[in-house]
C-alpha cells in the first residue's frame, strides 16, 4: 500500500533520514520504533508531505506522492495524528472534528453525520462533550480527539506519532484497544512509538530506526526475541 524507496530527507541542518526503505501492506499495523531523534517523526512528516525529500520516492497504491502538498496527501487517504496530540485548543470538540472533515472536503460539510457517528461509536466518551473546548480536556481525551479528527477524513492509512506519550497505563490499554478497532474497520496503520512494548503488542511488523537509518526490520514475533531489540527497547 505504502512504499518508501531510498528516502533521504533533511529537516533543519542535520540530514536526518538516510536511504530509508519501508513498506506497508494493506490492513497491517506496522510499528516504527527507535530512540529520540532517530528520525521517526521525520519519516511520518516526509510521508505527509510536510518535509520534502532530497532523494528517493514515496509510493501510495503505486502512485508517487512525494511531490504532493500536505493537504493533497490527506485527500488521497493518508491521515496523520501528530505528536503531542495538537488538537485545536480554542475549538470545541465538534469543531475540531468538523475541521478534520472540512479540510479534506473543502467547504462542503454535507454528510458529516455519518462520519461523526462512526467516530462516536469508537470513542463514545467524546459524544457528550461535543460543546467543550478542546484545551479543557484531559490528555487521554485529547488523544481520542486527535485520532478522531484524523479519522474524519476517512483515511485508508493512518500515521500515528507517539499516541501513548504521557498517558497512564490504563489509558494506554484503552488506546491499544481503539487502535485495534480502527484496523478492524479497514484502516492500515503506521505507528511511531517510544513505548516499544505497546508497539510490539499491536504491530504485525516493525522497523527499528537508528540515527536516520533502518537498523532492523521484520515480524514483531521474530524481533521480540532479538537480543539487540531486547536490550535496547524491551528492557525493564
Amino acid at each position: 500500500m505504502l512504499k518508501l524507496e531510498n528516502v533521504t530527507a533533511s529537516y533543519g541542518f542535520a540530514n536526518v533520514l538516510h536511504n530509508i526503505d519501508l513498506s506497508i501492506e494493506k490492513n497491517e499495523i506496522v510499528a516504527l520504533i527507535g530512540a529520540n531523534g532517530a528520525g521517526k517523526s521525520t519519516t511520518l512528516k516526509a510521508i505527509s508531505g510536510v518535509v520534502k525529500l532530497n532523494s528517493g520516492q514515496i509510493l501510495f497504491n503505486d502512485v508517487r506522492i512525494d511531490k504532493l502538498r500536505p493537504e493533497e496527501i490527506v485527500s488521497i487517504g493518508i491521515g496523520h495524528v501528530p505528536e503531542g496530540r495538537r488538537v485545536f485548543p480554542g475549538l470545541t470538540v465538534l469543531e475540531n472534528l468538523e475541521v478534520g472533515a472540512s479540510g479534506w472536503r473543502g467547504m462542503k460539510s454535507t454528510d458529516l453525520s455519518r462520519d461523526l457517528d462512526r467516530v462516536f461509536e469508537m470513542f463514545p466518551a467524546l459524544k457528550p462533550r461535543i460543546k467543550q473546548l478542546a484545551w479543557s480536556m484531559s490528555g487521554g481525551e485529547q488523544q481520542m480527539l486527535a485520532i478522531s479528527r484524523a479519522l474524519m477524513s476517512r483515511p485508508k492509512l493512518l500515521l500515528m506519532d507517539e499516541p501513548s506519550l504521557g498517558l497512564s497505563p490504563l489509558l494506554v490499554q484503552n488506546l491499544t484497544e481503539s487502535i485495534k478497532i480502527i484496523r478492524e474497520n479497514g484502516t492500515t496503520i503506521l505507528l511511531v512509538e517510544q513505548n516499544a512494548k505497546m508497539a510490539f503488542d499491536l504491530a504485525d511488523r516493525a522497523y527499528v530506526l537508528e540515527v536516520g537509518e533502518i537498523a532492523l526490520s521484520g515480524y514483531t514475533k521474530d524481533l521480540r526475541t532479538d537480543d539487540r531489540v531486547k536490550a535496547a527497547y524491551l528492557a525493564a
Partner: peptide
C-alpha cells in the same frame, strides 16, 4: 502544523 495535517490549505 496540525491544520496542515488536517488537510487545510
Amino acid at each position: 502544523f496540525a491544520a496542515t495535517l488536517s488537510g487545510i490549505k
